[in-house]
Amino acid sequence: MQPTPEILQVAYRTMRTIRSFEEKLIELVNQGKLGGFLHACIGQEAIAAAVCAHLKDHDYVSSTHRGHGHCIAKGVDVRGMMAELFGRSTGTCRGRGGSMHIADIEKGMLGANGIVGAGIPLATGAALTAKLKKTGGVGVAMFGDGASNQGAFHESLNMAANWQLPAVYVCENNGWGEFTPTEFVVPVKDIAERARSYAMNSMIADGMDFFDVYAKAGEVIARARRGDGPTLLECKTYRFTGHYVGDPLVYRVKAEADEWINNRDPLKLFEARVTGEGLLAADNLRSIDEEVTERITEAVKAAQEAPFPDPSELMQDVYAVN
């Protein structure tokens, strides 16, 4: 499946937006301007962009604590997201959710999630809705290698396989769960192997290569849409920064990280390929960079100028009907 130049442009804009958003929030945390628990997904941008390139608003994505990239790729407005991080009333969740709970159901974003593994059955549920209501949509769970050790993962895959749900399980294997290397806690070499227990289709993609993820995600999402069942798609990637913003990273050998950061940066790999093959011009990418920088700067400014919620809103929306 070859992406058209239009798709490539959108994908690059998505990846650049994710990168800039995350870089900006790290800067803001360092300036003491943002509170709460924040997790950046720098290094993993290609996966979100490539998977979501195949999705429409009526397709649902569930995400994780490291969810900004998935939200951006699924079309959640970055202004609202930035305002959410600042806890303003103009935030995606009116300041009530914060980084780990950014959600936009209308955009098909079922939410970042503070509970590791919790999103996996949620996407399975979205796939069940799609199947029973024949919406033509799919449910896509984005989650980490660490989450694949949760019962919620195994139970969901089993159910989806049994019911042949239009679901796709995208595991972003970044080699780490917090401060613990994946190989310490996962006995199989590839997370994808786990699909076999459920007689489920599986694939492995190079998560740093937009083109590879795009092709494979395209294939398995189409398969799910056709009614041919779910897939576990493992994308090999790396978390360029710490587990959380502020992580001192003392547990990780620098040479390991440098290897990925210097040689496997998904944005650089993308640029080398599209310019090398004459698919997009470097000028074109630079103007996207500028446009994105402007958008992020503007989002920060708007967020900082926006009001906080009023304390009287505390008890709003606990129930549909009080």
């Binding site: 959410e84 935030g91 300041g95 009530r96 959710g97 906080f308 919620p309 008890m315």
Partner: peptide, 15 residues
């Protein structure tokens, strides 16, 4: 308060 814990500082304080 009898609600989920809100994120933003003003509401968390009120909570």
């Amino acid at each position: 308060a009898m609600c989920p814990v809100p994120f933003t500082r003003v509401l968390e304080e009120a909570y």
